[in-house]
């Protein structure tokens, strides 16, 4: 049995792992099989993470966080959690391989998943012109006309990145102003290849075997229009990834995991949550990292408060536990 299992391998998961490992808790971190490293793995330049004055590539930052966690004894497993039992003093975590792990505490840091538009044609044309990953798929739209849907930082970053390939990038946004940071907005406004389509929402994604375009509706006048496109990148935000803990942990009205005050304590004793999965507002790499730190400190405090017989049960495995 483990002292702590961390589920998730983004900035919050790895920061929790660094702190837990340095507290000699020998954490097991379940990184996921194909999404290890989290959202930053699909990001290019990270310019707002302190300590990197020239910026750093997202995947490079995540590799370094992982190395830092491993240096202090974190064990990383590339598998997916398929089910969890968080009730009771001993928590069980079952993986895709069928393996089961037990621990006295769990830190849940599963982040968030891309939000879908939920319109006709989206499923069918996903991967056939409709994409959620500009860094993966931008390459295929050289000299093409594409659009990005969304008004936040990630939408601006994608639009700006996609101008490397596309001849024209429309940004479709429901409102008449952006919530993106000023620096990202200005970069997009100053780019001659980017054109904004304000006050417009996508009502359908059109095409048979490949994307042909989108149907738009003016949010002010209700007027409908069509826009021909070769590619459509959707960047309208994220939803917290909570499907594994439904019915086991309380959620907020926003769908994030509910935590007590400024702590990481969930409604279940011994279960802590960190990062985007508890954060409806900020969702930055640095806030997630800070949140992971809080969770590890809370878990450490909880483990120290456990009765001696329980703590001893976890100290037996892995056998390398040092005094």
């Amino acid at each position: 049995m483990r002292q702590v299992i961390i589920i998730g391998s983004g900035p919050s998961g790895y920061t929790a792992a660094i702190y837990a490992a340095r507290a000699n808790l020998q954490p097991l971190l379940i990184a996921s099989s194909v999404e290890a490293g989290g959202e930053l793995m699909n990001t290019t330049d990270v310019e707002n993470f302190p300590g990197f004055p020239e910026g750093i590539q997202g995947p490079e930052l995540m590799t370094q966080m992982q190395q830092q966690a491993e240096r202090f004894g974190t064990e990383v497993v590339y598998d997916d959690v398929t089910s969890l039992d968080l009730s009771g003093d001993i928590k069980t975590v079952t993986l895709g391989s069928g393996e089961t792990h037990e621990a006295l505490s769990v830190i849940f840091a599963t982040g968030s998943a891309y939000r879908k538009l939920g319109v006709e044609g989206e499923e069918k044309l996903s991967g056939h012109g409709v994409s959620w990953c500009a860094t993966c798929d931008g390459f295929f739209f050289r000299e093409k006309t594409i659009a990005v849907v969304g008004g936040g930082d990630s939408a601006m970053e994608e639009a700006t990145f996609l101008t490397r390939f596309a001849s024209k990038v429309y940004v479709i946004h429901r409102k008449d102003s952006l919530r993106a940071s000023k620096i990202m907005q200005e970069r997009a406004f100053n780019d001659p290849k980017i054109e904004f389509i304000w006050n417009s929402e996508v009502t359908a994604i059109n095409g048979e075997s490949a994307l042909a375009g989108v149907s738009l509706r003016d949010t002010a006048t209700g007027e409908a229009s069509e826009l021909a496109l070769d590619g459509l990148f959707i960047a309208i935000g994220n939803d917290p990834r909570t499907h594994l803990i439904h019915g086991q942990l309380d959620l907020t009205s926003e769908g994030t995991i509910a935590v007590a005050g400024r702590s990481s304590k969930t409604s279940q004793t011994g279960v802590f949550a960190a990062g985007d999965v508890i954060d409806p507002s900020y969702r930055q790499a640095i806030t997630a990292a800070g949140s992971g730190c809080v969770a590890a400190l809370d878990a450490e405090h909880y483990l120290a408060s456990l009765p001696a017989d329980l703590a001893a049960a976890a100290a037996g495995e892995p056998a390398t536990a040092s005094v």
Binding site: S33, V34, E35, A36, G37, M41, N42, P59, C133, T135, C136, F139
Partner: peptide, 14 residues
């Protein structure tokens, strides 16, 4: 696949 595609590198060992 491509070098610069993170999900490609993730799925390759699978």
């Amino acid at each position: 696949w491509a070098e610069w595609c993170g999900p490609c590198r993730a799925v390759s060992p699978i």
